[in-house]
Design a protein around this nucleic acid. Structure first.
Lengths: 128, 128
DNA sequence: CCTACTGTACTAGAACGATGGTACGGTAGA
DNA sequence: TCTACCGTACCATCGTTCTAGTACAGTAGG
């Protein structure tokens, strides 16, 4: 499956699902019109409660990323790609700002942050 | 005051206090032996409940950053500087890793992340 | 000694996230 | 038609965080 849930990273589980589904649509992993995993199936795969998945899907419908095919499942809606590309940029940018602000408030100057960032980016590359 | 609380950034309020006190000690804003603001005073300044501040201070005592002077207040403990310097590095590094991982998982490659990072770092500099 | 502060401890409740379970109507396929 | 799946809507329960209020022992200063 294309989702990774981290129970203790601060974000609510349903929110992690919402974000990652959006990222998958933005990235093209989930195509417009495609069926997403059913509530029960995704819950089984992630070993979480179906209600939590339903909660995430409800949010994604509110955001017009998914739409319901009654009795069949949920599909990626027509306008989803555009919405998700914008959302991805906005979400990542917000996270980055948070971290930078915290680092700066913690007494690190731009150079130190820069150095730390490069180190982490390199170790991220190595993993792939 | 030297603390900024953001109610909706995912982190618990007490945890934000813990982190920022540690950062202040690491940065030297709070010196070893110095009294930290009292539970009631800090609560008043941040307009939060005194119990929430007490919760944070309890955590900081467990982490051996603060120690109690009964009836007088809490002071920054002798070994606090070293502990906080290490903690700051560890905490910021962890946050950075989270964001980078999320960005990468969201389909952005190293270059795109790099660009986004530089933009945000510049806008951070401008604010100071 | 008295007063005003300190930390600390306790109870109670609200809000939220997550779990577990049950139930119902719609749809697809054998 | 029957069966198995689908989303959806409930319900009760639990843990965490935060708020609110009260109480008590220790300490400093007038």
């Amino acid at each position: 499956m294309f989702l990774h849930i981290d129970a203790n990273n601060g974000l609510a589980v349903y929110d992690q699902i919402v974000r990652q589904i959006k990222f998958s649509v933005a990235d093209g992993v989930l195509a417009v019109g495609e069926l997403v995993p059913s509530v029960r199936e995704l819950a089984r795969e992630l070993t979480i409660n179906p209600n939590t998945v339903a909660r995430a899907y409800r949010q994604l419908q509110d955001d017009e990323v998914l739409e319901s095919m009654r009795g069949t499942g949920l599909i990626v809606s027509i306008g989803a790609r555009k919405i998700c590309l914008a959302a991805r940029k906005r979400l990542i940018r917000a996270r980055l700002q948070e971290v930078l602000l915290e680092a700066h408030h913690g007494g690190l100057d731009a150079e130190q942050i820069q150095t730390l960032f490069q180190t982490e980016l390199k170790s991220l590359k190595k993993k792939r």
